[in-house]
Nucleic acid binder design. Structure first.
Length: 325
DNA sequence: AAGGCGGGGGCCATTACTTCA
DNA sequence: CATGAAGTAATGGCCCCCGCC
């Protein structure tokens, strides 16, 4: 058999096992490939090797191996068996049947004891050195395949964890948006509650107060967060529009005072809904706001009405806050 | 008993060769 | 027909173990 008649080793075995078309049409090789080792042939068949090649390949023919019967004639292992092999010194590929036999032995035990190596070499008509090299290379391939499988498993695990993280992150962002929306609604309700306590509030005063309210709520929230340290309000630090001063200190106007009727949420709602409960600022701040508004120690400017409540901020500083009613 | 030495085997990186598209 | 890629047999170096002296 010419060199071109040989088929590739392990890849051919893989193709055989997958019932793929083999890259060789040599009748001799195909004949050898027709041999399918019986499961019972594995183990305990040969005196030394774990899988008996002669019995499997030649149906128990004791004359020797199918391809290397004349091996004894030339101990270099590269004898010209009816022209099937390459000349000595040239690297040649193992036949598919030999590779199959070696694979079966490798599946049983991937290490090669000296006696087993000699037995395999004898049955396959190969040099013991060739059998050892084949096992060594096969172990290397096995290791690389194992590493590849482990890498795939780790990557799949990583991808799953990353997907979970992304989902959680998206959910967190959605909850943040929901909290912001609820807070805006709360601001509106708070302002509604404030108005009946004013005796007189002209349009300018309303505008000024509305501009200040975000800062007031933010300060209340900060006060609350400093005591509760709740992660729910982490977004406050990310929402600079709620703060007028950049150093995070809330206004000195924020002093506790009595304001038990700020919210129009029922007490049950506040108690049962953690979001609402956390969103609601401590009640005292708003009345104190009123007090500071109307009883400021500093005399009001001449241009400022005695009942105004601009807190020293100009209207232009808060142009984006719209009075809700 | 301790140490040097040589042989054998495994692992690893690399080379050389073959086969195929 | 030439060529590059892929697969694999084979080589060489290094290390470890073991038996012998």
């Amino acid at each position: 058999m010419a060199a071109g008649g040989e088929i590739r080793g392990s890849s051919s075995v893989t193709a055989l096992l997958r019932n793929e078309k083999l890259p060789c049409s040599s009748s001799e090789v195909l004949e050898s490939l027709l041999w399918i080792p019986k499961p019972s042939s594995v183990l305990h068949l040969g005196p030394k090797s774990l899988v008996n090649f002669s019995e499997n390949v030649n149906g128990g023919d004791t004359k020797g191996t199918l391809f290397f019967q004349s091996h004894d004639k030339e101990d270099n292992g590269y004898a010209d068996f009816d022209g099937c092999l390459n000349p000595p010194g040239k690297k040649r590929r193992l036949l598919a049947s030999q590779v199959l036999f070696l694979e079966k032995n490798f599946d049983v035990e991937n290490k090669l004891e000296p006696e087993r190596k000699l037995q395999l070499a004898k049955e396959l008509g190969l040099q013991p050195r060739q059998v050892a090299i084949w096992f060594q290379n096969r172990r290397a391939r096995f290791k690389s395949q194992r590493l590849e499988k482990e890498y795939d498993a780790l990557k799949a695990n990583y991808d799953k964890l990353k997907a979970d993280y992304d989902n959680l992150f998206t959910e967190k962002e959605a909850l943040k948006d929901q909290v912001l929306l609820l807070e805006d609604k709360l601001l509106l309700k708070t302002v509604v509650e404030l108005e009946p306590q004013k005796t007189i509030m002209d349009a300018e005063t309303k505008t000024t107060l509305s501009n200040l309210l975000p800062m007031v709520v933010a300060c209340c929230k900060q006060e609350d967060a400093s005591s509760a340290k709740s992660d729910v309000f982490d977004y406050a630090s990310d929402s600079p529009h709620y703060y007028n001063n950049t150093d995070g200190n809330h206004s000195s106007l924020m002093e506790p005072a009595d304001c038990s009727q700020v919210s129009d949420f029922s007490q049950d709602e506040e108690d049962n809904n953690p979001i609402i409960r956390n969103l609601l600022p401590p009640p005292p701040y708003f009345l104190k706001l009123e007090e500071d508004c109307y009883y400021n120690n500093d005399p009001p400017p001449a241009t400022t009405p005695i009942n105004s409540c601009n807190f020293g901020f100009s209207v232009e500083d808060h142009p984006l806050w719209s009075w809700p009613f």
